[in-house]
Nucleic acid binder design. Structure first.
Lengths: 167, 167
DNA sequence: TATTGTTATACTCTATAACTATA
DNA sequence: TATAGTTATAGAGTATAACAATA
């Protein structure tokens, strides 16, 4: 009962709220830009961007699912949409017949290129504008360990069951 | 098209990606906890929490809409759900007959109390665990100006200098 | 038997537009 | 006319579970 403090301290609370609000607003703005410029949802953009980052322009479904956080069926749905638009192609993986390799098409790459500058501009003007470059470094330095920590403690086990003393 | 640099610098890019990933994972974990513990969506929790913060336990619809980013109809929808569950009550605002005042019920307050410790625990274990307390202060200090900046530059005008004829 | 991916389905959420009523 | 809120509706997105094919 008393092993779980009822609240975060004020600084933590502020940081948490601001984090939520900042990313919520940023996300909103970015989604609007992506929708207007390329008729893409954020998830779709993330998928294209991830493929674009790859030297081969392709990834297996599983890899994509790992990167973007949701279910396999959701991924299939989104990739189907992208394929319908001609932005990606699906083909059986050469090494593993069960697998499916998704590859960015020329059109996909073009759309990515079309959308990217505006995307960057939104992020810069909203997120980075009020920060000095050393602030950005500091921020990056703070977020990296958090990200690593979260990755190693996956959301599946979301609510650590009162790990003290055990219930 | 040449006035907009094609990319952010690597540090900015890292900070941006980590920010997105961190909040995405955090959100996921928190939503799961809220769903399991109180059958609440994150938005619903935010609404209850906002009401709980108020000394009177109530807010006008407009105030709630300002805090949570959605459309008015979306807010009406969510508040209707909460009312159906007996967590809030709606009544005409005393001062302005057009307005509606939403008030937290005892059940709403109880649910909030039931859900809060686990919520806090998730945030602490996922977000704050890897950070020293001075790191948290630094983080808060960085996010506050960004939040202020974003608030003053609302998402409606998301993409600065955007073309006409979109949408 | 475990893994990869798809399908079918059901449900939640969100936005737009039309509408009512008060200011 | 402008503002506060609701309703109707329509569409997108997501998760779950059952399924087929390969390892």
């Amino acid at each position: 009962m008393s092993d779980s403090p009822p609240s975060l301290n004020p600084v933590q609370l502020g940081a948490y709220f601001d984090l939520i609000e900042v990313t919520s607003l940023l996300r909103h703005a970015v989604e609007q830009q992506l929708r207007e410029t390329g008729d893409l949802s954020y998830v779709q953009f993330q998928l294209l961007a991830r493929l674009g980052d790859s030297p081969t322009g392709s990834h297996r479904m599983t890899d994509l699912a790992d990167g973007v956080v949701y279910s396999r069926s959701g991924l299939t749905y989104q990739v189907s949409l992208l394929e319908k638009e001609g932005l990606v192609v699906r083909a059986p993986s050469p090494d593993d017949e069960r697998g499916v390799t998704v590859t960015l098409t020329g059109a996909g790459r073009a759309l990515l290129a079309k959308v990217l500058p505006g995307h960057v501009e939104v992020v810069r003007s909203l997120l980075f504008a009020p920060l000095a470059s050393e602030d950005v470094e500091t921020l990056a330095g703070l977020l990296a360990p958090v990200r690593d920590h979260m990755r190693s403690a996956p959301p599946r086990s979301a609510a650590p069951r009162r790990r003290k003393g055990g219930a």
